[in-house]
Write a protein that binds this DNA or RNA. Structure first.
Lengths: 199, 199
DNA sequence: ACCTGAACACCGTTCAAGT
DNA sequence: ACCTGAACACCGTTCAAGT
């Protein structure tokens, strides 16, 4: 079973397509992503991807799902590496989120855009897992009396909106790398102060 | 000079294309916007739009510019109708922004996406005019001692990020119409509290 | 089970030519 | 000055046929 000489069955076609697609999205944007070009780059006929992704949107959904998985993993690493203190963990998580947005702006946009659509189930679960890191953080803040009580989803919404907004400002070029760290620090401190006064 | 019977010169082609394009973007999204279909709908050959918009991106830029003009106007109306009190004006402005995002989610996305690009000048000016409403608001808050001093652009960044983030959450369906008013009220109150404690 | 290759209906873009 | 219409190179999607 030769792996060279282009065997009839690719073997990892799905994985190869996803990897190549993620690279294209990062380097050239979602608009430039073409199923036919992807097939060419991977060395397969233009009809082949159809087995794995019925249409273009299915590929985008799969990219979004993988994106949420990676985002969740990066947030997890950030929060676990930030010690025990609430504010330190909050800042580390926000910074990790914004870092993801900086490196994969088009992917993040796609991740949010894909959530409108057919609600693929797996996509929704991947998103929930990514955001569970934030929910744990909110629960810690509540347990320590730093944040309001009530549903963590609701309490965390302002925080999440702010972080997502910062990501959007960076992606759109309204905020550049220099201002970024300061803005993240500002925003997290602001959030904590605003919550504290309400207690 | 008959206006009926499809005269050779359309007369308002540029305006007609923009109006039709804005409708398509609102109803079916940017992805579905096609220059050829637009030309068909307006009753002109597929090559005609080229005089007014050299390529597809030029049309998108023009849409974005018109969007910023309308956004600025709506923000202006909201803030002027909210009386003199800072918090009331802040809430009215934020609510107006989010309302725009709810009704024209795809357009707002396009407005931010277009800012990456060629920096069309006119586009940038339209965006600045829209955001000038927010800057005035920040300056009022500073004058009244409610917000930190320093460059209004910098002080307002956290606020703007939060509002833009709420708009993103609404567009992506993570927050629905029911929660929306409460979230906007939460976020503006949170912002004021967080700023107050820093004074 | 997985992939090929022709076919179809659509694009955006270019450009000589018409009015 | 503004618009037409043919041409070119690309798409996504479908589907019989091959291995």
């Amino acid at each position: 079973m030769p792996v060279t000489d282009r065997p009839y069955h690719h073997g990892n076609l799905r994985t190869a397509l996803l990897a190549e697609a993620e690279r294209t999205v990062r380097e050239r944007g979602v608009q430039e992503l073409s199923l036919r070009e992807l097939a060419r780059q991977v060395g397969v006929s233009h009809g082949a991807p159809r087995r794995h992704f019925p249409d273009r949107q299915a590929l985008l959904d799969a990219l979004a799902e993988a994106g949420f998985a990676r985002l969740g993993a990066e947030l997890r690493i950030a929060i676990d590496g930030a010690g025990e203190e609430f504010e330190a963990r909050l800042h580390a998580t926000a910074a990790a989120y914004v870092r993801f947005a900086t490196r994969d702006a088009a992917l993040l946009e796609l991740m949010f855009a894909s959530k409108h659509g057919k609600q693929s189930g797996a996509l929704h679960e991947a998103a929930d897992r990514a955001f569970s890191v934030m929910l744990e953080l909110i629960e810690q803040g509540q347990a320590e009396g730093i944040l309001d009580h009530g549903e963590p989803e609701r309490v965390g919404l302002v925080l999440f909106a702010t972080i997502q907004g910062i990501a959007a400002l960076v992606s759109s070029g309204m905020v550049d790398a220099e201002q970024l760290d300061e803005l993240v620090a500002d925003a997290t401190a602001h959030f904590v102060r605003g919550s504290h006064a309400a207690a």
